[in-house]
Amino acid sequence: MSFISNLINGLSLGSMYALIALGYTMVYGIAKMLNFAHGDVIMVGAFTMFTAAATLKFSPAISIIAGIIVCTLLGVIIEKIAYKPLRKASPLTVLITAIGVSYFLQSLALLIFGSNQKSFPMLFNFEPIRVNEDLILKSDSLMTMGVTILIMVALTLFINKTKTGRAMLAVSEDKGAAELMGVNVNKTISITFAIGSSLAAVAGLFFGLTYGFIGPYTGAMPGIKAFVAAVLGGIGNIPGAMLGGILLGVIENLSKAYISTELSDAIVFAVLIIVLLVKPTGLMGKKINEKV
């Protein structure tokens, strides 16, 4: 029965990667840039919730909402200040800027909170669910999965059914043509950053709850892995990011349980390399149409 609990923990970890990967993939799809500061937004979200709940003694609900709002604003501000002026610059310039923003956020957190890990407040006091003697499920794992599924359904509906969602699809395919339809491209890019960053805040919450500790570099590794998940699924593709994230979490957790804890990251990255060798556009990536 431990296999089932390992699998569920893997799915939960994968849900967290999927949430982060969605931010990477949506921003890539619409702004055609890799926002390497995205991982650090998770850290900002976690620290905001930590400060609100542990230092300022706000209720869990208010702390979580505060974290989401701060991250949403942060995402929009980063885009406005750091990336928007570079809309016509080379991709390399934008990439280096994103790495700069990442270091900036890490250093800022280091300055404010110091380098010691902080213990993340237990915002929920769920009892583990005892299915039978052998199978005990962690409630926060189940919550992570449940919330992620809800978010994915909502996001899919939003993109396919709302006007803003359709504007996002149009911008991701052809910015100029979207503008000719009357779509405000700058506003659409801002909305994309807002959505991606709010999902990162939720991921920050799950990270804090799962690991119990947060620090200035908390976002770096999940950020990189979520990026791997986005590429694995096919960067720019939303269902691909969901699939990639969940697969990655499951592979990582099962390798930890059955192969080796030390090797689990190596296995994760090896899977990426193999997938890209076989299918360079990722699992669900579309073939890029050559314009005639």
Binding site: L169, A170, E173, D174, G176, A177, L180, K286, N289, K291, V292
Partner: peptide, 9 residues
């Protein structure tokens, strides 16, 4: 526009 630039997907 030239080249039609419809949303292919």
């Amino acid at each position: 526009p030239e080249g039609r630039r419809i949303f292919q997907q």
